[in-house]
């Protein structure tokens, strides 16, 4: 469970996350004119959960069931050699694949942009979408690559030394986004 000491501060609570996802779902519907060709691909672990939620939200609003999957980027990371080999997440593509679709990548936090770069490489090996867009619950800045999000839940100004941690009901038992000062670790 998250530590709620003086060094960590909740920047988004459950209802805020709910509203942010609702807005992103509407924006996706608007920008893709009804989400006809859209495939949502979440980046494990929490991006995949968020993609499921967005898919549910879109179905609820428009009555269209859009394909939702996940894309693990571990094998495509550029920092693999800096740490011991890590366990792999799940890549699960919808049965129709991603060729000719509009893929919306979903992640919890957009930071350096390196995860998204890895996801773009992974996508390249999986098929050829007509377009790739990016949705993120939190954009905390400090990009190291020319990458930006198309849909943002919350723009969060942070210091580079701070940590942003996302908790979701499905994996962590509650919904929250915490901003943690470096000393907290």
């Amino acid at each position: 469970m998250p530590e709620n000491g003086p060094l960590s501060r909740a920047v988004l609570e459950g209802p805020d996350i709910h509203r942010a996802l609702t807005r992103i779902a509407h924006e996706i519907l608007e920008r893709t004119k009804g989400a006809g060709d859209v495939v949502l691909l979440g980046i494990p672990t929490r991006g995949a959960t968020l993609a499921q939620r967005l898919g549910g939200r879109i179905e609820q609003f428009e009555g269209v069931k859009i394909p939702v999957g996940s894309i693990d980027i571990t094998m495509y990371r550029d920092d693999l050699r800096l740490r011991p080999a890590r366990p792999l997440g799940r890549t699960e593509l919808p049965s129709d694949g991603i060729d000719g679709k509009v893929v919306v990548l979903v992640d919890d936090v957009l930071f350096s942009g390196r995860t998204v770069r890895a996801a773009l490489d992974a996508l390249n090996d999986l098929g050829r979408p007509t377009a790739v867009q990016l949705a993120t619950l939190v954009d905390r800045g400090h990009r190291e690559l020319p990458i930006r999000a198309d849909y943002v839940g919350k723009n969060l100004p942070t210091a580079k030394s701070e940590k942003v941690k996302v908790f979701l009901q499905e994996t962590d038992g509650r919904d929250a986004v915490l901003l943690i000062k470096e000393e907290a670790r």
């Binding site: 495509y76 693999l80 890549t91 999986l126």
Partner: peptide, 16 residues
């Protein structure tokens, strides 16, 4: 178990 899925795709290669 995760890598088994790589063998099922058309590009069976990872850059790792």
């Amino acid at each position: 178990e995760e890598l088994a899925r790589v063998s099922e795709r058309s590009i069976k290669k990872l850059p790792t």
